[in-house]
Computed example of a mutant assay.
Amino acid sequence: MTPEISTRKVVHIIFQARNPSRKNEARQFIDALNDDEKAHLVAVAWVGRGAFEPEDYAEALATAYSEATTPTADYLMGMPHLSENLEAGLEALDIDVSDAEEDFYDR
């Protein structure tokens, strides 16, 4: 199963979460995502954190939907190492981020 959130959006959040002065922007960006994108973002972070294996992505996604009791931005921004977890999750899911990173760096 492939995450139903654009790689570019995930990379955007990674870069914002790494920069302390842009944490509020990251929170606003996450808040603006639709519910499906939010659930997929959480599932990617969980895979990156090791809470789920890549082959269990569907289970991670189902859990993200069922356990969404707090605002996603609050949950994710409170997660230690969010950017690293997202990066590791994309890598574990064999998602190539090179084009998205180049777009971000070209700004």
Rank of each mutant, 00 (worst) to 15 (best):
V11G: 03
G50K: 15
V42I: 14
A73P: 06
H81E: 15
S21V: 06
L33F: 08
A64W: 00
A58I: 12
L82W: 11
P3E: 02
L61H: 10
R22P: 00
N24R: 08
T70D: 04
R8D: 12
E4R: 13
A39Q: 05
D74M: 03
A68I: 04
P3N: 02
G48I: 02
E25L: 09
E37Q: 11
K9D: 14
A32V: 00
A88V: 13
E67H: 05
S83Y: 14
P54F: 05
A32P: 00
N85H: 14
Y75K: 11
L90S: 10
D35S: 05
K38T: 01
K38G: 01
A26D: 09
A60Q: 08
S66N: 05
V47F: 04
G50C: 14
E55D: 14
E87Y: 13
Y65L: 04
N34Q: 07
E4N: 12
G89Q: 06
S21Y: 01
E53P: 03
F15H: 11
F52P: 12
A32N: 06
Y65W: 09
E91L: 11
V44Q: 05
I5S: 02
E37S: 06
A32W: 00
L33R: 04
G89F: 03
A51C: 11
H40V: 06
P80S: 15
P20D: 03
N85M: 13
E84P: 15
S6G: 13
Y65F: 10
M79N: 08
M77W: 11
E25G: 07
T63M: 13
P80E: 15
G78C: 08
I5T: 02
D35P: 00
T70H: 00
Y65T: 04
I14L: 06
F52H: 13
R27K: 10
S6W: 07
V11P: 03
R8G: 12
L33Y: 05
E25R: 09
D31C: 02
P3D: 02
L76F: 05
S6E: 15
H81D: 15
Q28W: 00
I13N: 03
E25N: 10
E67V: 03
E67Q: 09
N19F: 00
H12N: 14
G89C: 07
P20A: 01
R8V: 12
L86F: 08
L90N: 09
G48R: 02
L61V: 13
V42S: 13
T72K: 01
D36G: 09
I30Y: 01
E55W: 11
N85L: 10
V47D: 10
I30M: 03
G50Y: 15
T63I: 11
E55S: 14
E55L: 12
E53D: 13
M79Y: 09
A43D: 11
E37Y: 02
A17S: 15
A73L: 05
L90K: 08
